[in-house]
Nucleic acid binder design. Structure first.
Lengths: 225, 225
DNA sequence: GCATTAATTTGCGTATACATTAAAGAATGC
DNA sequence: GCATTCTTTAATGTATACGCAAATTAATGC
């Protein structure tokens, strides 16, 4: 397991993985600056792989490299949230449509169905962390079923950018009961092979999620997460 | 002018700019491999900035770094073209909608109008290069007016990826007369503030462009450009 | 005491060196 | 002649060194 670390992965790859983790977990807080040399020491490697990793994470929108000021972990404002959800709405709806067009078998839709089941259980148990994880899986799998690798990559990128903000709002927002119903409707449209319905239902789902999340952020003046 | 080169831009930035140029122009042909050291010599700098530039261009989907095999300039297949146009269709349509919602003044729409005028002139003169340039400007400006920076970045990235392929099909495809009409319709919807119409018209425009381009690629067996 | 300039520090950009390891080629055994 | 193993080559991944410019601090003049 840990062998993956030293053996197959290069230091640059490890740096990408670890820095990403630290950013998403909040260990590297939004808005904070970090010198390349600090990060290098923290991760136990030289500046070279750190710089390469930072460059990659910069193009994924997680941080920004500013000469002499260090690497800045990018905060997410409610405006950013809007931008990102606009994109997620469009691309995921497309994916839902394409998934419905593809005519997947029950087997092929098992993961998607499983993610919905997990969300139901999580709601039952009022376990928000588990719900969030299953929700993430649903959206990821939906996009995978859409069959467009680039959409997959973009959606993953956008999801990363809002993950911190989502984690924060998780305990403020209402219990996502409605959300689960939405997922079920989308799933049904896909399994019945109804592209138009899948697309539109998912679109509405995302628009509502966006309105809710941005509303919360603005109401609570959470303007950089 | 040339001062920008040595003065304000870092070698890494120059490498990004120059490599991108060379890829888009075909000077670095699709599917070819290039050692980091070769590229370094070509651009007159050390491997370090070349590696950094390559990393950035890799995340923009223009090339791929494969250990020991060198930097590979990514070809674009007709499947790639489909993926990319699917994304452009969704995101540009959103931009058209948002631009219409924004209620821009005539002044603010001047660049967009100008690009349409240029396309008309180009068609008149049967100057396809000029038409392509103006078309590029139209789409770029449309997305800018949409007001979503991330959409702008993604669309730019996708456009880069298909630029070579578009250049090739340019002289095979029919004269883009219909295309110009489409642009005018979209423009009108935006200037009249009709988001739904702008969105739908642009969507249809892109779907047609996609069908036409992918059709040509497949018909001519152009499967990696 | 304040502003302006000089000195110093510090972090980055980049060249360079080197260890590692995959790939290519040579040599050996059958 | 062919397969297999050993050698050699060569390209990468990474550490390191260093010049340069920005930022900070000290110093000087008023």
């Amino acid at each position: 397991m840990k062998d993956q670390d030293a053996k197959t992965l290069s230091n640059t790859q490890r740096a990408v993985r670890d820095l990403r983790r630290m950013i998403l977990s909040g260990e590297l807080a939004a808005g904070t600056d970090h010198l390349e040399s600090e990060l290098a020491e923290t991760l136990g490697m030289s500046r070279t792989p750190i710089r390469e990793a930072a460059l990659m994470l910069e193009s994924k929108g997680l941080l920004e490299m500013r000469p002499r000021k260090g690497v800045r972990i990018l905060p997410v404002s409610s405006d950013d949230m809007r931008e990102i959800y606009d994109i997620l709405t469009e691309l995921e709806s497309l994916a839902a449509q394409r998934a419905a067009e593809a005519g997947y078998s029950e087997d092929e839709l098992a993961v998607l169905a499983g993610s919905i089941a997990k969300m139901d259980q999580a709601i039952e148990a009022e376990d928000l962390e588990a719900w969030a994880e299953a929700d993430e899986l649903f959206h990821q799998e939906l996009v995978r079923l859409g069959g467009n690798k680039r959409v997959e990559a973009i959606v993953a990128m956008m999801s990363d950018q809002v993950r911190r903000a989502r984690a924060t709002t998780l305990f403020i927002r209402p219990l996502p009961v409605k959300s689960n119903e939405d997922h079920r409707v989308v799933f049904q449209a896909i399994s019945e092979g109804r592209p138009g319905v899948a697309r539109e239902r998912h679109r509405e789902h995302r628009l509502q999620a966006q309105a809710m999340l941005c509303g919360i952020l603005e109401k609570h003046r959470l303007n950089s997460l």
